[in-house]
Nucleic acid binder design. Structure first.
Length: 419
RNA sequence: GGAGAGAUACCCAAGUGGCUUAAGGGGACGGUUUGCUAAACCGUUAGUGUUCGAAAGGGCAGCGAGGGUUCGAAUCCCUCUCUCUCCGCCA
């Protein structure tokens, strides 16, 4: 949720920034109008209540007093209903207005206008036509999509043998690396309450992206961002305890509605995938610097794995609903001759904190204010798996094990057992 | 799944319709006294949300959550959530 004062006091500026993020103008105008009405009616209601308090005698009221009390209470009741309705309308509208993009986010309408910030690594120079990760993985018996489709459905995968071990090694490697960098390790529930989904902005607008568990208020979490950010929901954190840095592994579940026909090869886009997530709670003045740090920590994984990647700054039209600024990390996929997203690192400013009521208390004056939240994938494990297969393949169709994973796997190379 | 007991402020806790502006205690913080510490005594302690205000400072909400009854609800009624104890089942 945005600070309501932004729309009240800096209306033109905020409106234009939101329109850059493809927000409907009607929605913004409607909200502004409702908000004004809600405030003026709210003031009237408070005054009536104040009046009733003054009229209230200490003991039993006389019949005369009773008359005016009844009268006031009746007015309060009517006004209360109006204000409650306006309040709900404002809340609903406010919840569907996205975060205002930061000034540093490039203005644009689609991912084509994202701006490349940096590039790292040497693209592999194969002396043969590189295979895609599905071909490699299936040949090497590392995963099985057909059987997964039988037991569950499409866009699910069974990791097997060396594949299962590689997936597990990657999770451990990522957790270990981030732990050493000072992140506190979390292993959260995979299922979350709808209140948590609302806190981080997945609800109400993006209900169609996640799986709801029937007849319960529970959802399969689409990202550990939900669990970890909501750990501090309704809390006030002392400034001296900031920043709080967490790293969490969790399976993630997404409907991927509207992606039929996209990325149908392999394990790139799945309904269930593993992800290691970084989450930070920080003071407002440090959040932009913390975004740089967080992104660098995610990049560290790619550099240690020696996977070529680039970093792009998302343009306003491509920014996620809750984000004010986002860097995507894109790893090189030789079979597609493209960089593809493997991590998304965002600064939400106080947008999530305001929804989820996460605040900090300043050390010097004990003032309470909303803090800033950030998160980023560090990294999406399945996509890292796929990128390793493609970038580390040999002309015999084997996979060289990246140096940093050798101790996790006790292997130099992954190849067919019978060779 | 069954039975019972709870939820009040930082903690403990009183409170069965108006005298509650939520008692009392602990802790914390500030002060007096003091060579220092402790004790004693005095004082402060409702965080938060929201709104009005340039500010100082007001108003309103709030006793697990949401509804209801009433002129008036921590208190009465309904629904829900969570915690604890016991039984059953279970990795």
């Amino acid at each position: 949720m945005n600070n309501p004062k932004l729309i009240r006091e800096k209306y033109e500026e905020t409106r234009d920034a939101l329109v850059n993020k493809k927000t409907s103008l009607a929605l913004i105008e409607d909200y502004k109008q409702r908000d004004e009405l809600w405030r003026s009616e709210g003031i009237a209601l408070d005054e009536l209540r104040h009046q009733r308090k003054r009229l209230m005698p200490k003991g039993k009221p006389t019949s005369e007093q009773l008359e005016s009390l009844k009268d006031t209470s009746e007015k309060i009741k009517v006004k209360q209903e109006l204000v409650s309705e306006l309040d709900k309308e404002c809340q609903d509208l406010a919840l569907s207005i996205p975060n205002v993009p930061d000034r540093s986010a490039p203005i644009g309408t689609s991912e084509d206008e994202n701006v490349e910030v940096s590039k790292w690594g040497q693209l592999p120079d194969f002396k043969f036509v590189p295979k895609d990760h599905e071909t490699l993985g299936v040949q090497l018996g590392m995963f099985d999509l057909k059987t997964a489709a039988k037991i569950t459905g499409s866009r699910f995968v069974i990791y097997k043998n060396k594949g299962a071990k590689l997936e597990r090694a990657l999770i451990n490697f990522m957790l270990d690396t981030h732990s050493k960098a000072g992140y506190e390790e979390i292993l959260p529930p995979a299922i979350v309450h709808e209140d948590s989904m609302r806190g981080t902005g997945q609800l109400p607008k993006f209900a169609h992206d996640s799986f709801k568990i029937e007849e319960t208020p529970y959802w399969l979490s689409p990202t550990a961002e939900v669990q970890v950010t909501n750990m501090e929901r309704d809390n006030v954190i002392e400034e001296e305890n900031l920043p709080r840095n967490y790293v969490a592994y969790a399976p993630c579940f997404r409907k991927e509605a509207g992606t039929y026909g996209k990325d149908i090869r392999g394990i790139f886009r799945q309904h269930q995938f593993n992800k290691v997530e970084l989450v930070k709670f920080v003071t407002p003045e440090t959040s932009m610097a913390e975004l740089e740090k967080l992104t660098d920590h995610a990049e560290t994984i790619l550099r240690l794995l020696k996977l070529p990647y680039r970093k792009v700054s998302l343009c306003t039209g491509d920014l996620g609903f809750s984000a004010a600024k986002t860097y995507d990390l894109e790893v090189w996929f030789p079979s597609q001759e493209k960089y593809r997203e493997i991590s998304s690192c965002s600064n939400f400013l106080d947008f999530q904190a305001r929804r989820a009521l996460i605040r900090c208390r300043r050390t010097n004056n004990a003032q309470v204010e909303y803090l800033h939240t950030l998160n980023g994938s560090g990294l999406a494990v399945g996509r890292t798996f796929a990128a390793i297969l493609e970038n580390y393949q040999t002309n015999e169709g084997a996979i060289r094990v990246p140096d940093v994973l050798k101790s996790y796997l006790n292997l130099e190379i992954i190849k067919n057992e019978w060779e």
